[in-house]
Write a protein that binds this DNA or RNA. Structure first.
Length: 511
DNA sequence: GGACGGTGAAACTTCAGGTTGCCTC
DNA sequence: GAAGTTTCACCGTCC
């Protein structure tokens, strides 16, 4: 076997190989299995590089309205030509990095699996620093061969006239090198398995089939599933029948479907019965909610009539859709317990006892709710990163999902006649979208006015549209600048109203 | 004698990502 | 299970 010597500059071979790649005038992607490791490895590499990418560094630093610690670290690395890349970065930063790498401005990207899927970002070398990843409850696990192949597949840039690429696996010893060679280089990729029989998946598909009228009886349900990949793969309809049966009963219990009573019962087959969606079931299917989530939301919304923003956020934070909820770290226990104590009596979800298995998950939902709530209290990204260890990219994803669930909650309330909750839910939704306190809502009606400017206006004494209309000449311009001040003035005169979502209008019109 | 700083070992803590989902102007 | 971070004990130095 041919061997190549790489100069040893540090005690980390992946750093040395990355540096060697840059020294050859080529680029490298380094794959690691945690965000923290990505950041540290990138810093180790950057420290030894002498790139000059001040422009890129500045762009990365100022991607948010106020830079987080993460932004600062990223910018510092980038200025020398190496960066980290993971789901915690703001989308803008990811885009900047990907473009800069394609343009050859960056020598090295150290990343978690983010760059292995979706993004097409080839490099001369890919370096897989670690092939073991922690899975909760299972300890360290080998990453799948398929994942390794995704990594290795990123090496070589034919567009840049590379005649070959190099994929490097890092081993800590000779025996481990043998094992990696065996397992990953010569190994077979895993089989692909159908996940249809996994309950949440089946729940959704089953309700969708019934709601769309594709199936109307238990027998047509089974004959549908007989033709799926799941049945093809496992050839075990008995198991699927059992799961289908159980799921149907649950959907009926939850009020999403009705089943005609049956005259005959056979022991090992599903009883032949007619199946129809209820109007609630139809809506749940349209909303693409997991029926279990819909059920939990309905229970929660129905349990109390006085709805607090925190309680609503905690309710949605405890659903499957919001997973993974934010893990509560040791040093955060007090913070979470305080929040719990404060909001305890208004919660819509029953608190498990300390000894319950799901207690950790409950605390995680409280932490998630608390984080979202702080966002609606106008806390910014640097604060959320410091306080909850939530990075900007992760915040964005959570906000998106929460927005969708709030919409779903509104729709469910309409259908269930919980009219008194509607206004509050809509208000929370807008507050979450913009990250503002309730007092700013009236100002958000204006185009060009968001979280920051509405706060500026409010601080300057313009608290309502009425105040704005009564503003003396030049006053708005002093707060907002010439152009925007002018635009707001025109909007107030009714020339160019902001396009609005109907929910927003409904929720804002009350002010 | 005590404050301070540096060092290294031990103890402690944490651990990927994503797709679409709704509606609408 | 391992990497990375924090804590702590220990020692030497300086005022």
């Amino acid at each position: 076997m041919q061997s190549v010597r790489i100069p040893e500059v540090t005690d980390d071979p992946s750093v040395d190989i990355a540096l060697d790649t840059v020294a050859k005038g080529k680029q490298a992607l380094v794959f690691v299995t945690s965000k923290r490791s990505a950041e540290k490895t990138a810093e180790d590499i950057a420290r030894k590089l002498k790139g000059k990418q001040e422009g890129l560094a500045r762009q990365l630093l100022t991607a948010l309205s106020r830079p987080t610690k993460q932004c600062e670290r990223l910018a510092k690395c980038a200025s020398r030509g190496a960066v980290f890349h993971h789901a915690g970065l703001a989308q803008k930063q990811r885009d900047l990095i990907e473009t800069a790498f394609r343009e050859g401005k960056l020598g090295v990207i150290v990343c978690t699996p983010t760059l292995a899927y979706g993004v097409n970002l080839p490099s001369f070398r890919t370096i897989v620093k670690s092939v073991k990843r922690y899975e909760s409850g299972r300890g360290l696990r080998w990453i799948p061969v398929l994942e390794y192949l995704q990594y290795a597949g990123r090496s070589g840039r034919p567009d840049f006239h590379d005649d070959h690429g190099e994929a490097v696996l890092i081993a800590s010893s000779e025996p481990e090198a043998e094992e990696l060679l065996e397992r990953y280089v010569h190994g077979q990729p895993e089989e692909i398995y159908s996940k249809l029989a996994v309950e949440p998946v089946l729940r959704m598909h089953l309700l969708a089939l019934i709601a769309s009228g594709t199936v109307r009886s238990t027998s047509s349900i089974l004959s549908f599933f007989e033709r799926t990949f799941w049945a093809h793969q496992f050839k075990d309809m008995d198991k699927l029948t059992t799961v289908v049966d159980r799921t149907l009963r649950r959907l009926e219990e939850w009020g999403f479907i009705t089943m005609a009573s049956s005259d005959f019962v056979s022991a090992d087959e599903l009883e032949e019965r007619g199946v129809r969606p209820t109007s609630l079931g139809m809506r749940v299917a349209q909303l693409y909610l997991d029926p279990l989530t819909a059920h939990q939301l309905i229970l929660g919304l129905g349990s109390h009539r006085g709805l607090s923003a925190f309680a609503a956020l905690q309710l949605l934070s405890s659903t499957l859709e919001m997973r993974p909820a934010l893990r509560v770290k040791v040093k955060e226990y007090d913070l979470i317990q305080d929040a719990l104590l404060q909001h305890h009596d208004k919660l819509l979800v029953e608190e498990p006892t300390l000894y319950d298995e799901e207690y950790d998950a409950f605390l995680a939902s409280v932490k998630t709710a608390l984080m979202l709530h702080e966002w609606t209290e106008e806390k910014d990204e640097p604060y959320l990163l410091e306080t909850f260890d939530v990075r900007p990219g992760e915040l964005k994803v959570k906000l998106q999902t929460a927005d969708w669930l709030l919409y779903a909650m509104v729709e469910l309330c309409k259908l269930l006649g919980f009219k008194e909750l509607l206004a509050e839910l809509m208000k929370i939704r807008v507050r979450l979208e913009y990250g503002v306190r309730e007092e700013l809502l009236p100002l958000l009606k204006l185009k060009g006015i968001g979280r920051v400017r509405s706060r500026q206006l409010f601080a300057a004494g313009f608290k309502t549209v009425g105040h704005l209309k009564a503003a003396p000449a030049g006053a708005l311009e002093r707060v907002l600048g010439e152009k925007l001040g002018q635009s707001v003035r025109e909007q107030l005169e009714g020339k160019t109203p902001r396009e609005q979502k109907p929910e927003q209008q409904a929720s804002l019109s009350g002010y």
